[in-house]
Design a protein around this nucleic acid. Structure first.
Ligand code: FES
Ligand code: FES
Lengths: 145, 145
DNA sequence: TTCACAAAAGATAAATCTATCTTTTAAGTA
DNA sequence: TACTTAAAAGATAGATTTATCTTTTGTGAA
């Protein structure tokens, strides 16, 4: 569905967001450990997220990554967009160059249902709500043991 | 969602199936042209589809690829399974090693809705029905112009 | 202002996916 | 049987994705 990089990005974003209520900034090393991803690669992904204004970064001592209030209210869709683009929500399942009702592939009218439900779900789920799920202790970012 | 190879595979399978009612076998070259994919690569994909019994092949003169009656009733899910595996229908959207209600990622209970709707759609759509959509002229395999 | 810290940027490498080419095997026909 | 046809199998190459390492830039504190 989404790339490995995008999964790392989602986990990193939600982790950073989960620290927002305490006004805590987190560094690449800590993030990489939490999301079980290689540190340098995590750095690259965070760079992209920062460029796309999904998270904010600050250099130097006491620096790190954090989410501001507006960023907490971004839909998780924006994380996918920043890393993979929106192709997953728009591409033809048969690989036709254009997906449209006027020149449909054989599965088009069935597939658009799936795809638009997917879009709605990612559009309506905010980073904040996912961070809250984490903070209540009812959801997890790390694999068990 | 699915890989480029998988899209080629879906298109090839539906094209072959669309010829079944006339008992026509089609060769790699013709298939590759129809699905707008490189010929040699199409051959590799057809090899995999044949190994997984999604389509049948026959070597030699008057040979080629065709679908038998049982293959026409396979869900399109089986094509995805043969090429990409079922990961798209089972993997955690956050990349956790196991997706489960007991150790959910922060989006789990939302995402399983999307994923299971996707699964149902691919499980309930047969190769035959897609081939029929093509044969009625209401759907297309090739890009316009 | 100097120093230490941490992210950004750039260059490089490994792994996977996509694509091509050559040789071998199987099937039908004369 | 000899011959032609077409897919299978194997080897190789290119492109993209994932991952690593080094150097530069920006920030805060002493
Ligand atoms: S044309 Fe294929 S999904 Fe719309
Ligand atoms: S645990 Fe992440 S989708 Fe189920």
């Amino acid at each position: 569905m989404v790339s490995k990089s995008c999964k790392y990005a989602i986990r990193a974003t939600v982790f950073i967001a989960s620290k927002a209520k305490e006004n805590i900034k987190v560094g690449v090393k800590e993030i990489a450990e939490e999301i079980e991803a290689p540190e340098a690669f995590t750095g690259k992904i965070l760079q992209t997220l920062n460029k796309n204004k999904i998270v904010t970064s600050l250099k130097g001592p006491y620096g790190g990554f954090y989410s501001d209030e507006a960023q907490l209210d971004l839909p998780i869709l924006e994380v996918v967009n920043a890393i993979d683009g929106l192709g997953v929500f728009t591409d033809c399942v048969f690989g036709l160059h254009q997906c449209s009702d006027d020149h449909p592939c054989p599965m088009h009218f069935e597939y658009v249902k799936t795809r638009s439900q997917m879009y709605t779900s990612f559009k309506n789920t905010t980073i904040r709500s996912l961070a809250e799920n984490l903070n209540t202790g009812l959801a997890f970012l790390k694999n068990p043991e």
